[in-house]
């Protein structure tokens, strides 16, 4: 147990260089701007006076090293600058929109895991069967789908042609009031408030974008599950288990799947990274009021502080997810921390 705690501590420390790297790159991105950063940060509508004000505030008249520490110091205080598009602090804007994006992304990811893992396992245990071929087709087709295209396609079919889905505009139909704020996740909040009608409405809005993301995330997870299961089933230790007459289910779950789960879990980190990107596109397609939409608006309006804040917070979120995955891996894989 002591060694486990030590490993967890070590892993937490290992995240530090990543965080520092992220802050450095994000700092460089702001400073790499061709032209005068102060002009960009002040926004498209700024006059001369406010540009000078921004220059002062950002410390752009000082050395790079100083600028970096000012930047890092501001970050530590949770200050990501002001959004000129909305006139509110970037950090605040991002925080209020984060639950919307997370609700969408996590639902998509959850759906994908629920479908992809059993599918990959089935395919691996029956190589050459129809389910295996289906899995291979889905995997190759899935990674080829542009998410924005899938989203539009689903809208056309389920909203325009069939009329099953509500209009693809936001998290909730305008007929409903958002549930009282507790977690920011409408589905959870409406359940907490006991408002089943709002809950159902939330789900109706959520289904299409979540399915779009799910289709996107399905492929890599199913591919990895299938590959890892195939590898585990062909391994020497599974042969040993068979040679000792263990039952099929014991071999499949205790021996093969637990080993195969490790690379699948590692892949989830990568999938999450892709999902955060795909999320931006899906939010645009479905007019979802999350941070992706916010970032696109900021991009169009050249609102740099907002874009930088968005990139930085997405990266930190991703680091946090990777950290959680690694901690889980540390707990279930005795070998973690001993290689290299």
């Amino acid at each position: 147990m002591r060694t486990k705690l030590a490993q967890i501590g070590r892993r937490l420390l290992q995240a530090l260089p990543s965080v520092i790297g992220i802050i450095v790159i994000s700092f460089l991105l702001t400073r790499a701007l061709p032209g005068d950063p102060a002009v960009y940060f002040a926004g498209a509508m700024a006059d001369k006076e406010s540009i000078e004000q921004v220059r002062k505030a950002l410390g752009l008249d000082r050395s790079w090293v100083e600028q970096f520490f000012i930047y890092a110091g501001n970050l530590a205080k949770g200050d990501m600058g002001m959004s000129h598009n909305t006139g509110r602090p970037v950090a605040e804007e991002l925080l209020t929109r984060l639950p919307a994006s997370l609700e969408l992304t996590l639902t998509g990811l959850g759906l994908a895991i629920l479908i992809a893992v059993p599918l990959g396992m089935l395919a691996a245990t029956r190589p050459g069967s129809w389910i295996d071929h289906l899995c291979r087709l889905l995997v190759t087709a899935g990674v080829s789908l542009p998410t924005f295209f899938t989203g539009l396609f689903l809208i056309y079919i389920f909203y325009y042609l069939l009329g099953w889905a509500p209009s693809p505009l936001g998290r909730l139909d305008i007929l409903y009031m958002p549930p009282p704020h507790a977690t920011g996740f409408y589905a959870i909040d409406s359940l907490l408030a006991g408002d089943m009608e709002t809950f159902a409405a939330t789900l109706r809005q959520l289904v299409l974008p979540a399915v779009t993301l799910c289709l996107f995330a399905l492929a890599p997870i199913a591919r990895m599950t299938r590959g890892a299961m195939l590898g585990a089933l062909a391994s020497d230790y599974v042969r040993t288990a068979r040679a000792n007459g263990l039952t099929r289910s014991k071999i499949l779950f205790t021996y093969a799947f637990r080993n195969a789960a490790l690379p699948v879990l590692t892949t989830l980190g990568m999938v999450f990274s892709f999902l955060l990107g795909a999320n931006v596109l899906v939010e645009k397609v479905f007019s979802w009021p999350g941070i992706g939409s916010f970032a696109i608006e900021a991009l169009v309006a050249s609102d740099y502080a907002a874009v930088q804040g968005f990139v930085l917070s997405m990266a930190l979120l991703f680091v946090a997810v990777n950290l959680i995955i690694d901690l889980v891996l540390t707990l279930i894989d005795p070998r973690v921390g001993l290689e290299d």
């Binding site: 450095v24 702001t30 990274s273 892709f274 930088q308 990139v311």
Partner: peptide
């Protein structure tokens, strides 16, 4: 460090910058 970013998001940031 590059991989610590969600890649599409990083690409957005780079093009913006």
């Amino acid at each position: 460090t590059i991989m610590a970013f969600p890649l599409f998001v990083l690409a957005m940031g780079i093009v913006a910058a």
